[in-house]
Design a protein around this nucleic acid. Structure first.
Lengths: 96, 96
DNA sequence: ACCGATTACGAAACACGTAACGATG
DNA sequence: CATCGTTACGTGTTTCGTAATCGGT
């Protein structure tokens, strides 16, 4: 796998499900700016455009769709593992 | 899913496959110290001990085993996605 | 004008390497 | 005493929030 920042993928995944940076930012407890920067950097690292910036939010490119679908699956698997480890499954720990 | 640093999970995954921090560090182009720190932090975040520190390397706890298995699956899925995106397989696996 | 995304930039958090240390065979 | 893991510490890098800005409807 490429040397891609997995955390950025998680951010992208949330953005993809919302089709909107603002909402994604809220869910992630981040600012819009931070989310935008992260997505942009991810696209640069991958060398692929994942989002189509529209006037009224964002939509996914075909590459973005594939990436999103894969992330959902991958995160689901990891989630299962954490549950079996005995974790609270959705703990949010804001950075600040 | 928990707010776990996915990059730390990747490091853990490599450590798990080698049962040895030193080798994992080499493969990841990191120092032993960095790997040790990352694993430790991951364990703290998860609230679970993943590795049993032996005198001559490390072995996995049951939780560690589950975590490792899940990571392998998850990474495989993501890998597939990146291939379908048209990646130039920039994997850190130099022919060795 | 409104709404949403982007960008610049200073501040904070993070991850790293080094190196000294501890433990074990 | 050689090897492997840990810890402390200083430093460079990453990521963040803020706020100004751009773009479309």
């Amino acid at each position: 796998m490429k040397n891609v920042n997995l955390n950025a993928l998680r951010v992208f995944s949330v953005v993809a499900t919302h089709g909107n940076l603002q909402r994604a930012a809220e869910e992630l407890n981040l600012s819009r700016g931070a989310v935008s920067q992260r997505i942009k950097q991810l696209e640069i690292e991958l060398g692929v455009v994942l989002l189509v910036r529209g006037a009224r939010g964002v939509s996914l490119t075909p590459e973005g769709e594939r990436c999103h679908a894969a992330m959902e699956d991958a995160l689901a698997i990891l989630d299962t593992a954490f549950v079996s480890i005995g974790e609270d499954s959705d703990r949010v720990t804001p950075r600040k």
